[in-house]
Computed example of a mutant assay.
Amino acid sequence: MTETTSLRLGDWGVIRAQGADAASFLHSQLTQDFALLGRDHARLAGFCTAKGRLLATMVGWRQGEDEILLALPAETLAATLKRLSMFVLRAKCKLSDASAEFAVYGLLGAPDAQAWSLVRDGDVVQIALPAAAGSGRALRVQPVATPAPAGATTSAEDWAWAEARAGMAWVRGATVEAFVPQMINFEVLGGVSFKKGCYPGQEIVARSQYRGTLKRRLQVFETEGEAIVGQEVFSSTDPDQPAGVVAGRGTRDGRTAIAAEIKLAALEAGSLHLGSAGGATLQPRALPYDIPPQE
């Protein structure tokens, strides 16, 4: 039986949305359905510009009556909170930064569970995350006064490695407005509802889905080189312009796992390299999920 290890994700924060209109307000602004959000599951969601570009990605769940919490990378929190607050207007919803009240942990070796399912223990929630086969992951959010999860700790690099190998990437400061949701496989991972009403960028996101115009996708690679989020990737067949960008990365045992958004055409011939056409070679790895063909 695999031991569950944990890591305090100090680079994550929490936004609180509270009030009678909290769910309907978030439903109108984010890529997922919050009107039908129950207490036994969470929502992966994105916040887009009017042009469909992701400003932030997050996980949301019901914490209490008329209260929804959103966990997201701290480097995008302040701008997200400010921009969301601009649209509250007359809605009965108060948005605030609740990061000082909650501790966010990543769990590796968590029991297998359907992604975004949620287990509660009082005010503590544990949310199953997408994972590569045999490497269960979860997000645990708890009041800061609650003791840390029992058991051994894991390293930040092991956590980042597992996330990249899971084919998942969060919008970070370096990648704000870099992606339409489908470019990082966000809809495949459960981050977009195509049945809900309008939200900023909805027309662009829907057009990418149904008109077969998507030319870029997130792919998983390994390399011996170092990588940073936001770093460009180049193809040997077209060395003068970038073929993609690193969206997530983690290093383990001298190898770097990379989740990179890549031009689909660049996967058909030649090789991919980090930073320049002469940089470290990226070796493709299988995604742990299927990408549906474009119609």
Rank of each mutant, 00 (worst) to 15 (best):
W161A: 07
K51E: 14
D33T: 00
A247W: 03
R217T: 10
M1C: 13
G275M: 12
K195Y: 02
F179M: 05
Q209K: 15
G136S: 07
R249S: 14
A74C: 10
G134K: 07
A78N: 12
S28M: 07
V188C: 11
L44H: 13
Q29C: 07
D123Q: 15
D158R: 12
F194L: 06
R43G: 07
S271K: 08
D240Y: 09
A150G: 05
E157V: 06
T146F: 03
A133C: 03
A169F: 02
A23G: 02
K92R: 15
F179Y: 14
D253G: 04
V220E: 03
D253F: 10
G250I: 03
G60C: 10
F194I: 05
S236M: 11
A277G: 07
L37Q: 03
R140A: 09
T251F: 01
Q32D: 09
G106I: 01
F221C: 03
G46I: 08
D253K: 12
G151D: 00
T57Q: 11
I184K: 07
A128M: 10
R16N: 06
V246N: 00
D290Y: 12
T153K: 10
V124S: 09
T57I: 08
G167E: 04
I15P: 06
L264N: 11
E222K: 13
Q114K: 15
T4D: 05
L264P: 00
V125I: 15
K196Y: 00
D66A: 15
T281S: 12
I184Y: 10
H273P: 04
Q126S: 15
G225R: 11
D238R: 14
L272Y: 10
C93E: 05
F34Y: 14
T154S: 13
L287K: 09
